[in-house]
């Protein structure tokens, strides 16, 4: 990773970002302290978590079941808070 970083001599002028849409490369999942864990047996496919996730880290699958994208999920816990069947539990990372 560190090898990809540019030196100051290689940076674009005026501190611009000249490649739009590069936020997808930012692995915000490393910020997470609590990890949402889904119990599929309790999921009723209401998609409330999918609507509420502020980072689009809940992926909606063909059959309206959901999958958590841990590359982007920051562990805010909104999905677990909103889930009507308590199908999502927040678990401490690294434990």
């Amino acid at each position: 990773m560190a090898d990809d970083l540019k030196t100051w001599r290689e940076l674009p002028v005026a501190m611009i970002v000249d490649q739009p849409g590069n936020t997808v490369e930012v692995e915000t999942g490393t910020w997470r302290a609590l990890r949402p864990v889904l119990d599929p047996s309790k999921c009723i496919k209401c998609l409330i978590c999918w609507v509420y996730c502020p980072d689009l880290a809940i992926e909606r699958l063909e059959d309206d079941s959901v999958k958590i994208n841990y590359y982007y999920c920051k562990g805010c816990g909104i999905c677990a808070e909103e889930c009507p069947t308590k199908a999502i539990q927040m678990v401490e990372e690294g434990v």
Partner: peptide, 28 residues
């Protein structure tokens, strides 16, 4: 030298943390 142009979009004034801020200041 740089401008906001819909035909050639750029981000002006983004975020730069520990991995780039000091290089940006060195260049400035």
């Amino acid at each position: 030298i740089v401008k906001l142009d819909p035909d050639k979009p750029v981000t002006i004034g983004a975020l730069a943390l520990q991995n780039y801020y000091i290089e940006l200041k060195r260049a400035q």
